[in-house]
Write a protein that binds this DNA or RNA. Sequence first.
DNA 1: GGCTTTGTTTTATA
DNA 2: GTATAAAACAAAGC
Length: 290
Amino acid sequence: MPELPEVHTTVLGLRKKIKNLIVKDIWTDHKKLIKKPADFNLFKKDIRGRKIENIERRGKNIIIFLSGNKVLWIHQKMTGHLLVGAWEIKSTPVFLGKGPLSEKINGHIHFVVLFSNGKMMALSDVRKFSKIIYSDKKEVFGSKELKSLGPDALDGGMNLSEFKNIIKGRKKARIKQILLNQEAISGIGNIYADEILWKASVSPERPANNIKKDEFKKIFFFMKSLLKTSIGMGGDSMSDYRNVSGGKGAYQNHHRVYKRKDKPCYRCGSKIRRIKIGGRSSHFCPQCQK
DNA sequence: GGCTTTGTTTTATA
DNA sequence: GTATAAAACAAAGC
């Protein structure tokens, strides 16, 4: 579940490893991942020879800038993650046959970008929910999805009162759902939403118009600190997430509530409960989260 | 083989 | 139109 800290870690890794490289070719065995352009051969033709100029994060989205104002936009959704390596290629010209790589990195590589220096960036995704779009910079940033993203959870420009206004503007919705709503605040997913609310001692079911001043403060503060802490640990690899070198993050070892149903609360010892909010599993302590 | 999983989009409802 | 909830969708592991 790549959320803000995982996507952030990936972006830092990509900057280190693929910035300034020239695209030589691309490969896929699952064209459904690629939402644009519709024609894979066009995609291939157009991206060949372009240089990776920079990589940025927008919420949970990875934006790779290429020369000539082109952009490769990747959303890893649930189980996607990007790997960078110099694996051996089966055959040249590249990407003939079933898969592009002679050694098996893992069984779930569905998209590969090969660079002129022999390195590769591979998208691994068991569930194949990831989304890839290749288009003009203007079109990508003009898209509804990116334009309607709320301020980044780690946006230094967002102060407490702005945060409060965003939440309060959604009156009746439950706080957990607002934290998960990318149009309100961007970057938070199911794991961090549960963890932030536990830290703040606020129930995930609490309606937005019922949250007190000091609780806003706590949610705001712990949102920032938890996300930063996780970035410092290289993200959360409880599920499929890996960094670009294939290594695990460590945040999964520090969960206070997520996936801890019926285990004792670290604060008060009560049993952690799991309920569904908006169809998502939500973990919380019924005793000390009010 | 039905249930679960998440992030996002789409549809329905008040 | 707005706010919110529910359902749908992507695919595969168990």
